[in-house]
């Protein structure tokens, strides 16, 4: 079976005061039906930008320069607003970190849920209400009927997040994009929400694209993991493979920079320096300025090398390919 979403060579440009530059460079990956794919990386590495590019939600100052995002045979990048509206919310649901700004403060929860369904599905008001109430109940909200009548500000952070998930799921999308869905929440609430997402996914066969900087969350939720750095995917592998044998120096250091709650208090690995500004103009490996293993060959642009079954890495060293310089 073909991939549900296939992103090919996506490059997105942002126009700034100092001219335009690429924030995403040649991002390619795919998500199969029913699969959970995670993108992990630090702030500003392009995780959210990838999702926004695919969904046609970029601001006025940004645009997809090249590439394709094939979903259901359609290239999302080339669709006009009207065509996109029939995909967004219907076929692809999206949830964000900040539920308060994603929900409309002047409409009740019930209002927003039913409106979404009425816009996309052929249902009556009563049917939509019944379905929304049922969905809120499934989200673990104690009194769904009462919640329907509430405004977003009357709910706790965890409750709002559930409402937003209910909204994203109300049209039974084939793909759910979750951009830092639990970052603002406490760990116990995070566990509740992630369990909920997994149950929904297992019940409906939906695919999940999880964007997070939380390495633990990615490790325990995803089938496959992509690591992003400075607008590029630098490593991708199955979760087991990636965490057991990280190949890229950045991935390795990233994994070692997190204190372990279960293990010994080994020295944390801190990565010196910062992500370079205007990385889109860099030639060669973008991590090289901070990489302890950097050598001459890193000055040349790096491709993705296959280092194992479904494991690829953008580093000639890790791939054992000492290119002649």
């Amino acid at each position: 079976m073909g991939a549900l979403l296939e992103i090919r060579d996506l490059t997105t440009t942002v126009k700034g005061e100092m001219g335009s530059y690429d924030v995403l460079s040649g991002v390619s990956f795919s998500i199969e039906q029913g699969e959970t794919v995670g993108i992990v990386g630090e702030s500003g590495c392009g995780k959210s930008m990838t999702a926004l590019s695919v969904m046609g939600l970029l601001g006025k100052n940004a645009a997809v320069r090249t590439g394709q995002a094939l979903f259901d045979g359609k290239d999302l990048v080339r669709l006009d607003e009207r065509e996109l509206d029939s995909v967004r919310g219907r076929m692809i649901g999206m949830i964000y970190q900040d539920a308060l700004s994603a929900l409309n403060p002047v409409f009740t929860v019930g209002n927003q849920l039913t409106e979404t369904m009425r816009a996309h599905l052929d249902v009556s008001r009563a049917e939509a209400r019944a379905r929304a109430t049922e969905l809120l109940g499934r989200m673990g909200l104690a009194d769904p009927a009462a919640t329907m009548k509430k405004y977003p500000h009357m709910l706790s952070g965890g409750q709002r997040q559930r409402v937003m998930i209910a909204m994203a799921l109300c049209c039974s999308p084939k793909l759910l994009i979750a951009d830092e869905p639990t970052t603002a929440l406490d760990v116990t609430v995070q566990a509740q929400i992630m369990r909920l997402l997994r149950e929904e996914r297992e019940a409906s066969g939906m695919s999940l694209w999880l964007i997070s900087h939380d390495i633990g969350l990615i490790a325990q939720t995803c089938d496959r993991v992509l690591v992003m750095y400075a607008g590029q995917i630098i490593e991708q592998a199955t979760a087991e493979e990636l965490f057991a044998h990280p190949a890229h120096p950045y991935t390795e250091m990233l994994l070692r920079s997190v204190p372990r709650v279960d293990g010994a208090r080994e020295a944390l690995c801190s990565i010196a320096g910062q992500v370079p500004a205007r990385y889109g103009e860099m030639v060669g490996c973008r991590f090289a300025p901070r990489c302890p293993y950097a050598c001459q060959a890193c000055q040349r642009s790096q491709e993705m090398y296959t280092v194992g079954e479904s494991h690829a890495v953008r580093c000639h060293c890790a791939a054992g390919k000492e290119a002649a310089v």
Binding site: T188, Q192, R195, D214, C222, F243, V261
Partner: peptide, 17 residues
């Protein structure tokens, strides 16, 4: 409830409050 950076670790959602 803390997810560990290990895909084979115990399920952090197993005992949700």
């Amino acid at each position: 409830a803390v997810p560990l950076a290990d895909p084979t670790a115990r399920d952090f959602t197993a005992h949700v409050l």
